[in-house]
């Protein structure tokens, strides 16, 4: 193939060569910007979209107001007899009155996991393995002994004569009197009686006390709520594993509990963050807030119910206490 011998074949070759090279260069140029253009789908997406919506007829609560929190790592929420609102965090407890105006704060000795208010206004603040008691003015009164190495207190309830600690580490409810003397434990498995105690797959475990003295305790591994007498006997339980609105899903739900003055049980869940109200017999009453109300991945929605029938939700991730009221036109409060 000498230079200068321009047979058609040679010309064709040359055109072909130039075309191929140009094509390759263009391909490469396109390629460099491929990822700034498209290919943005996840073919393996795990979607919970279909469970994000709550039926309108159940969603009968409105977020009436919020309290913006200014404390580090808010973890525990409680309401006292005067409906004052207590939030415990890493370093301090902050207090608001029922209307949401700041009513004081005091610093704590250890990072709080959960908080409860006693009959004489004592403030019980539980850390990972022990409780500190503060007076109504925030002065430190006493420190109870540690529950031991493996303890992880994640919930607490106070009645007139007892304080109940939900210990996710040892999977037990510890019952103390208000002065810190251990009275008994609830939840020790008794296989002979076909009672297997609490199943706690993660650090979610909560207890709430009703005005009649009954205890409501989560059993998150079994996705149910159980009712106990103060003496530790299991009276009833309910709860259905389900992604649907009526049940509990995931491996550890409900995460938190509260009981209203009328005896309804308020539950909160993680995974699909939602807050619901159940009748004492376990039938779903209403939904306070559905998954769309919270940021994705919200966990640890601590709950409280006050004497006005409001439901308070601690949304630590958003730095808020969300206060919900039942819609008035329905004519009844839970």
């Amino acid at each position: 193939m000498d230079e200068g011998r321009r047979t058609p074949a040679v010309v064709l070759y040359r055109v072909l060569v130039v075309a191929v090279i140009a094509g390759v260069l263009i391909l490469l140029a396109v390629l460099i910007f491929r990822y700034s253009e498209g290919a943005h789908m996840n073919p393996y997406e795990y979607s919970i979209e279909e469970f994000m919506d709550v039926p309108e007829e159940l969603l009968l609560w409105d977020e009436a107001s919020v309290i913006e929190l200014d404390i580090a790592q808010p973890a525990g929420l409680a309401v006292d007899a005067q409906d004052r609102i207590f939030v415990a965090g890493a370093q301090e407890v902050a207090i608001w009155n029922a209307e949401g105006t700041a009513a004081g704060r005091f610093s704590t000795l250890a990072p709080a996991r959960t908080i409860a208010i006693g009959p004489q206004g004592q403030i019980f603040v539980a850390s990972v393995d022990h409780v500190n008691v503060y007076g109504p003015d925030g002065s430190h009164e006493s420190e109870w002994t540690s529950l031991g190495e493996g303890a992880f207190i994640s919930g607490m309830a106070a009645t007139d004569d007892a304080v109940y600690l939900a210990d996710a580490g040892s999977k037990l409810i510890w019952r103390f009197d208000t002065s810190g003397r251990l009275l008994s434990q609830i939840g020790r498995p008794r296989p002979s009686a076909d009672y297997h105690g609490f199943l706690i797959p993660s650090r979610c475990f909560d207890v709430a006390a009703a005005t009649d003295g009954a205890l409501w305790i989560t059993n998150p591994g079994r996705l149910r709520v159980e009712k106990y007498s103060p003496d530790g006997s299991l009276d009833a339980y309910w709860g259905e594993p389900s992604m649907g609105i009526e049940g509990f899903c995931g491996c550890c739900n409900p995460t938190h509990l509260a009981v209203t003055r009328q005896g309804h049980v308020v539950t909160s869940e993680k995974g699909l963050p939602r807050v619901k109200v159940y009748e004492p017999d376990g039938s779903l009453n209403t939904v306070v807030a559905g998954p769309r109300h919270f940021a994705p991945g919200t966990v640890g929605l601590d709950l409280a119910a006050d004497s006005m029938g409001r439901v308070l939700v601690l949304d630590g991730g958003a730095g808020l206490v969300r206060i919900f009221v039942r819609r008035s036109e329905e004519g009844k409060t839970p």
Partner: peptide, 17 residues
């Protein structure tokens, strides 16, 4: 860590018995 393991030294998740 705030969400799942708030306290260092609190050990693992509760192990099943």
């Amino acid at each position: 860590g705030v969400a799942t393991a708030p306290a260092a030294g609190a050990g693992r998740y509760p192990e099943p018995d």
